[in-house]
Structures are given as structure tokens and as C-alpha cells.
Design a protein around this nucleic acid. Sequence first.
DNA 1: GCCAACGTTGGC
DNA 2: GCCAACGTTGGC
Length: 159
Amino acid sequence: MNHWLIKSEPDVFSIDDLARVKREPWTGVRNYQARNFMWKEMKPGDLALFYHSNAKPPGIAGVAKVAGVPYPDETQFDPKSEYHDPKTTRENPRWWLVDFEFVGKFYDLLPLESIKADPVLSQMMVCQRGTRLSITPVDPLHFKRACKLAGWGAHTVSG
DNA sequence: GCCAACGTTGGC
DNA sequence: GCCAACGTTGGC
């Protein structure tokens, strides 16, 4: 199983939103590297840290799970969508996504400040300078450590 | 609101 | 295929 970190602006879509809808297509990713992670590397059941970006404070808010296999992002075909891509076609879609399913919300947000202050977690890609990728792979040890620092046992994640 | 980082675009 | 200009991200 692979582990991931997915960024979302809570003003747009937060961990609470995911908790409410239970399952959400991860629309709007328009970066090839991030797309490739969803398209080629994510497997159903993979766990992801749900990160609140552009938030006060920014940090990891909970855990989500890859809920199915990749399929084309419908918003790319919609001229009214802000994610519309006029250069893509239904025959050969450019943008693919997976659904994410709610797993759990941390009792307290694990702030970026704490992530940076931790000798292990500070090596996560999300806190390297200039990393703007909205989806990044996460070392399983980092995943475990993040859950632990958030007061969330591995038993909670799996069960 | 600032600005560093960096991906994308487009002229050549 | 180079690279300057431009746009976006996202912490601060």
C-alpha cells in the first residue's frame, strides 16, 4: 500500500466537507505530476493525509482513503467549469482522478509548524521549500508519525 | 498583500 | 529546443 498527502483549501473543500459527503471525486488537479500519481500509482485502499492549505493555520486535518480506480475528471469537458480544458477530448482525456473517501478527522489539526519542528516529519515533501504539488507521496513512517503526533493510533486508521 | 519558487507558454 | 515572461501556489 502507498501513502499520500493531498492538499485542499478548506474554504473550498475541507475535511469536514469530506466527512459530510463521505466520498468525493478529486477534481481540478491540473498538474501532470499530481495527475500521474492518481492515474498511475494510486490503488484503492491507499491512505492519504488530508492537508489544509491556505488556511490559518495550515496543517494536516485528517485521513482519507483512495476509494476506487482512476477515471477522467468530468470538469475538464465542462465549458462552464473553472477547470475546463479546451484542449482535451473524451476520446483521449488528459486529466484523470480518483475518488477519496473519508476515514477520519484528527481531534486537533496537526499544524505545519509542528510538522516542521519534528525531526522526522520535517523531511516530508510538503515542507520542502517551493513544493507546490497538490499531491505528494508520503513515506509510510511519516504517515504513521503524523497520525501519532495527532494523537491518532494506527488501530484507528485501520479500523 | 508580499514574494519566492516553479510550472507553463510562446516567440524565436 | 532555448529561455524570458507570465501565472499560480501558498506560507508568512
